[in-house]
Structures are given as C-alpha cells and as structure tokens.
Amino acid sequence: MLSNNEFVRQSLELNLFFMRIAKEHSIFLEAGFTPRDQQFIEQSEMLKNIFSQLLVETINMSDGIISPEVANSGELVTDLTLAAERETQFYTNIKIDPNITRMEAALAESSPGNITMNTVRMVEDLNNRAIRAAQQIAGFKSNLLQNVLSCRMFTTNYPLLIDHILREAKFYLRMLTMLQKREEFDIAREAAYQETFWNRIMAEHSKFIRGLLDPTEEKLFDTANDFGKKFDELTLEAKNLSKDMGLLPEVTDRSLKNTVDIRNFKRQGTEGLIQCQIRSIAFPLLGDHVVREANHYIRMLKDFKKGKVE
C-alpha cells in the first residue's frame, strides 16, 4: 500500500501530465469539427475549460512536492510549448491560456514543501474530480468515434486519432483508480503493460505525422513511416513478454533508444511547424503534445530500468 507521501506525489505528477494532455485533446477535437456540429464544438470547449481549471488547481498543490525528475523531464511543458500554443491559437481562434503553461514551467524551480493530512485529503478530492472529468471526456470521445465510424458526422481528425486519444483517457482513468486504492504495482508486469501501451502510442504518432505532412515532404514522410514500422515491432515484442518476462530488459532498452530517437524527430518537426519551415496540416501544439508524451515515456522507461514504477 502506498504511503501518504507517495500517494500525493504520484497523484500530482500523473494529473499534471494527463490533465494537460486532456485539455489539448479537447482543443484538437474542437478544431476538427465543421460548423454544422456547433454542439460538439461547445462540448469540446467546455471540456477544455474543465481540464484547464483542474490543472491550475493541481499546479497550485504541486509546488515543492513533485520530484525534480518529473519537473525537469519535459513531459509537463517544453521550451516550445508557449510558442506552439500561441501559433495554434492564431490558426484556430481557440483561446489557450499561456499563464497555465508559465505556472507549470515554474514548478521546476520550487523549493521542497511539506505534505500534511490536509494535503492528502485535498489530493483525494482532486483525484475524484479528475476521475469524473476523465470519464466525461472518454464518453465524449467514444460517442464521437461512433458517429464518425457510422458516417453520421465528419471531422478532420482521423478515426484512429479519436480512438487513440480515447485509449489515453482510459489509461489515465486506470492509473487514477489504482492510485485512489493506494495500489502498488508489480514492477515487471506493469513495465510490460505500459511498454505495450506506449509503444503502440508512439507507432500511431508516427503514422499521424506521416498522414499530416504535405505530399512534397517526402524525406520526413519516409522517416515517420520508418518509425511507425519500428514501433509496431516493439509493440508486438512488448505484447509477447507475457510468454517470456526474461526478455523485458532487452525490450526496454530498445524501446528507450527508439523513443529518444522519435522524440528528437518530433521536436525538430515542432520547431519546423512553429517557424513555418515544414509543409503540413498539423498544428504546432500537436507537435509539442507528442514531444511531451515521448518525454513522459522516456522517463518511465528509465524508471523501469531502475526497477521503479510510478
């Protein structure tokens, strides 16, 4: 059973990462609807605001509590996030509050704080509200996916992308539920589960990048395509770990190397989008978003190598 200190720290770190991810999913969904679906645009805006408010609360609770590894990992914000938000707001006219990003970036400079029983109660309440919000956005994404697959509506987001972000919402819910129960992980089994999940996410990122590039960007297209194939193979290897857990260190090493490589590729792409040097129909914030997800996975893989799961 997790101690109070571990419960608080792990909860805040999880929420800082996934609340921002959920907020941005709402933005990407909102930007993809046609004028006909005004109701869905309004729902996306509402979800963006819910996760924005929850994220501000989480940031205020996290000062001096989250680990330096998380604060400096690049999974919460990067040095490109503010510019990516600014450009994406310009393109979409969807309001994105830059102060939230500045607040989250400042956590890296926090002094150590104390965890009291009041902190524990506040985090338990925060997690309960995060669970309800995650259930709400998962239901929205599920309804949207059903509508798109049955040709009842059109969106510029791929059906696979909607399914992809639905799986991320369900993953977030799983982690929140386990934390609320104070469950500790079986390290090897959790590593195998998360590597299967995140390698598939990295494979799909590669395929989305490939599909959002202009047809003239042939070199970038080929690089993204190659990453997609590599991570498809790594996903299969991670799935097969249930047959031989002895292969876990080898799979973790390969996953880490390839995730660092794709993170660097994504970062270069994001810089290119911000600087208007890449022909694409991707928003700069989507680029920064997938960079942060890669940074999160890199930190997790490093923890797996040390025999830790957080």
Score class of each variant (00 low, 15 high):
22 A>K: 04
60 N>T: 11
129 R>T: 10
21 I>Q: 11
106 A>P: 00
12 L>G: 01
291 V>G: 03
30 E>T: 06
213 L>V: 03
70 V>L: 11
240 N>G: 04
59 I>A: 03
309 V>M: 08
112 P>L: 02
287 G>P: 02
238 A>L: 07
284 P>S: 05
173 L>F: 06
57 E>H: 10
96 I>Q: 01
37 D>G: 07
154 F>M: 13
39 Q>F: 10
46 M>Q: 15
123 V>T: 12
100 I>R: 01
180 Q>P: 02
210 R>T: 01
185 F>H: 09
43 Q>I: 05
274 I>C: 04
213 L>G: 00
219 K>T: 13
55 L>N: 03
272 G>C: 02
254 R>T: 08
97 D>K: 09
114 N>D: 08
99 N>E: 14
212 L>F: 14
192 A>F: 07
242 S>W: 15
26 S>Q: 05
255 S>V: 04
301 L>Q: 06
121 R>N: 15
210 R>S: 09
111 S>Y: 14
69 E>C: 07
291 V>N: 00
239 K>G: 07
127 N>A: 09
145 L>H: 01
7 F>C: 01
10 Q>A: 12
190 E>P: 02
179 L>W: 02
85 E>K: 01
43 Q>D: 14
146 Q>G: 13
277 Q>E: 14
263 R>F: 07
93 N>V: 08
302 K>L: 12
261 D>H: 09
122 M>N: 13
174 R>G: 12
233 E>S: 11
223 T>C: 06
199 N>F: 05
128 N>P: 00
266 K>E: 08
92 T>S: 06
86 R>M: 12
30 E>I: 06
18 F>L: 13
117 M>S: 15
306 K>C: 09
91 Y>K: 13
306 K>W: 14
90 F>D: 05
239 K>W: 13
256 L>I: 07
243 K>T: 10
47 L>H: 03
123 V>L: 04
219 K>Q: 14
12 L>P: 01
51 F>P: 00
21 I>F: 09
66 I>N: 01
180 Q>G: 03
179 L>C: 01
3 S>L: 14
178 M>C: 05
308 K>N: 13
13 E>L: 11
307 G>W: 13
263 R>Y: 08
193 Y>C: 03
149 L>N: 14
283 F>I: 08
166 L>M: 12
138 A>L: 13
34 T>L: 15
45 E>S: 07
97 D>W: 10
189 R>M: 15
167 R>Y: 10
282 A>Q: 11
172 Y>W: 08
14 L>V: 06
245 M>F: 15
263 R>E: 11
181 K>I: 01
171 F>V: 05
73 S>D: 00
271 E>T: 03
283 F>Y: 11
78 T>E: 04
309 V>Y: 05
16 L>T: 02
215 P>R: 15
62 S>Y: 03
248 L>E: 00
75 E>P: 06
13 E>S: 07
268 Q>K: 14
250 E>W: 12
138 A>C: 09
276 C>G: 05
133 A>P: 00
40 F>S: 11
135 Q>S: 11
106 A>H: 12
202 M>P: 03
200 R>P: 03
234 L>K: 03
1 M>R: 07
46 M>D: 12
72 N>G: 15
82 L>R: 00
216 T>N: 12
260 V>P: 04
42 E>M: 11
243 K>M: 14
